[in-house]
């Protein structure tokens, strides 16, 4: 199952909540303000690292670009909208709001 998260982790516990319910192997796609979670060197670095032990993490490149985020945490994969669609092809979707 693909989980999408669109909230900044600084103001909202949606990413934390999503991770609690995601099964090992489920991909996590960060979109909109959700991409702030993977900016390199922020205080969620260790959390992202821990998530990556069990779940692949993706971030939507157009949302990173829009927010001026060029350096992202190691192990996180960037995708464009086409990549978003490909993930949806492979998985049912749980859009955390």
């Amino acid at each position: 199952m693909l989980h999408t998260v669109n909230k900044s982790p600084f103001g909202n516990d949606t990413l934390e909540t999503c991770i609690r319910f995601a099964l090992p192997g489920d991909p996590i796609l960060l979109i909109e303000d959700g991409v702030y979670a993977v900016q390199a060197g922020n205080r969620f670095a260790s959390m992202i690292e821990a998530i990556l032990q069990k779940n692949p993490v993706f971030a939507l490149q157009p949302d990173l670009n829009a927010r001026g985020i060029s350096e992202i945490a190691n192990g996180v994969t960037t995708v464009d909208y086409e990549g978003f669609v490909k993930l949806v092809e492979q998985h049912q979707v749980n859009s955390w709001l």
């Binding site: 669109n6 979109i31 909109e32 303000d33 157009p62 464009d80 909208y81 086409e82 978003f84 669609v85 949806v88």
Partner: peptide, 13 residues
Amino acid sequence: QASDTAYNFAEAA
């Protein structure tokens, strides 16, 4: 941003 993301996703799909 939801309307914009939905639109961009739909176009890409």
